[in-house]
Amino acid sequence: MEMTGGCQCGRVRYTARIESDEAYLCHCKMCRRATGGASTAFVNVPVDALRWEAEPDWYRSSPIAHRPFCATCGTPLGFAFLEGGENIDITLGSFDDPSRFRPTRNYASESILPAWQDTAHLPATRSDENASVTERWMKTVGKVPD
């Protein structure tokens, strides 16, 4: 199945051939810093199963790896080894519809932030219930984003 995705501003787009619903959470400190999250959800795909419609920007995040991103909006798009990598990790949140993916494992478990592992017990608020944000969207563009 082919799935599409890209950055927040739409400048960088991709199509990936996906054969599995598996995804994983990386808890390493480098991924946390690269994405600003408590962990990073990735989908691992073969390099030859990924087609960039517009080439992303890349930065060397360590001596062994580099990461695709959009320099216009800042969206982190993945992780790849510099040498010998047959696969690339694509950020789950950059897919247009990431709902099919299921987490199957944790990576870099030594760096897990325990307080962020299970948040199901926390109170939940829908975006459209935040009057301040809704008002800003309506005033600026006339609708709340999808």
Rank of each mutant, 00 (worst) to 15 (best):
L92N: 03
A108G: 03
M138E: 08
F42S: 04
K143W: 00
R13E: 04
T35E: 00
E110I: 06
V133I: 15
M138D: 00
L77K: 01
E110L: 07
M30E: 08
T72L: 05
A80H: 10
Y107H: 09
T4I: 01
Y107A: 15
V45K: 11
L82F: 05
A71R: 09
D118L: 04
A41I: 06
Y59P: 12
T35D: 00
S132N: 08
R102Q: 13
Y107C: 12
G37T: 07
Q8M: 13
W116R: 14
C73M: 11
S109H: 11
G36S: 03
V144C: 09
N87K: 11
W116S: 15
G84F: 09
I112M: 15
D128W: 07
W52M: 03
G85Q: 09
Y24C: 10
E53R: 11
S39W: 06
D128Y: 09
T15I: 15
C70L: 08
A34F: 06
D21G: 14
G5M: 06
D48W: 02
F79D: 00
Y14I: 02
E86H: 03
P123K: 06
V43W: 06
M3V: 12
N44H: 05
Q117V: 12
C70Y: 05
R126F: 02
E129T: 03
A108D: 08
T134N: 04
Q8H: 14
R11D: 14
W52T: 01
Y59K: 02
W58Y: 15
R17M: 11
G5R: 02
N87G: 01
G85N: 07
R136C: 05
H27W: 08
V144R: 13
G84Y: 08
C9P: 01
K143M: 02
T15S: 14
D57C: 05
A120K: 12
F69C: 07
S39H: 14
R126C: 02
C70T: 09
P68Y: 06
L92P: 01
P114Y: 05
T4A: 12
A23Q: 05
A71H: 08
N106L: 06
S127Q: 11
W116K: 12
E129C: 05
E2M: 09
A23C: 11
L82H: 06
F79P: 11
N87S: 13
S61A: 07
D97Q: 11
E19H: 15
G84P: 02
D96W: 01
R136F: 15
S20R: 15
L25V: 02
P103E: 07
A38T: 13
V133T: 11
R126H: 10
S39R: 09
T35K: 12
G6D: 10
G93T: 07
G93P: 03
E55T: 09
R11H: 10
N106I: 02
F95D: 07
G85E: 12
R60D: 11
T119N: 08
S109K: 15
N106R: 14
R100N: 02
P46F: 10
W137E: 00
M3W: 07
G37Y: 07
C28H: 07
E110P: 00
N106W: 04
T104C: 08
W137P: 00
P98A: 06
E2V: 10
I112F: 03
S61I: 04
F101P: 00
D48K: 11
S111L: 01
T91C: 08
I90D: 01
